[in-house]
């Protein structure tokens, strides 16, 4: 029972593995750029998870067409769309802070 459930939920397992990879990079790697990449990988895993929750067997994309009754859930897709743009913002801000930090370190070494 448990095993069949895991096999039908492989996307959740994949998102879990992606989350672990991202967490490893964020928490246990000293390199700042790798930490930022790790944050991005964690974000991606959450997007995959949300899209997986909204899935529906045999569902069409949420664009209303005559004669189609079975659509996937549009709500997680809208949420992920917003999260993508916010993700771009956080990544940009993190990179800019990293740049500032490197500049400061260079000044101190001189």
């Amino acid at each position: 029972m448990m095993i069949t459930r895991v096999f039908s939920n492989l996307i959740y397992v994949a998102s879990m593995i992606l989350f672990l990879i991202g967490f490893y990079a964020v928490a246990l790697r000293p390199n700042l750029i790798k930490k930022i990449i790790g944050i991005n990988i964690m974000e991606t895993s959450i997007f995959l998870f949300l899209i997986g929750i909204g899935n529906r067997k045999g569902g069409a994309a949420p664009l209303i067409v005559d004669g189609v009754k079975n659509y996937v859930n549009p709500l997680p897709q809208a949420v992920v769309l917003m999260a993508l743009v916010v993700g771009v913002g956080t990544t940009a801000l993190a990179l800019i802070l990293a740049v500032k930090l490197f500049e400061r370190e260079e000044e101190e070494q001189l």
Binding site: R5, S8, N9, Y12, L20, Y24, I53, N55, R56, K57
Partner: peptide
């Protein structure tokens, strides 16, 4: 540490309903 977190996440995945079920 990672294995511990992974185990907790795996327990959650086991409790999730089957994907795509209406």
């Amino acid at each position: 540490f990672l294995t511990l977190i992974g185990l907790f996440l795996l327990l959650t995945v086991l409790e999730m309903p089957i994907m795509g079920d209406p």
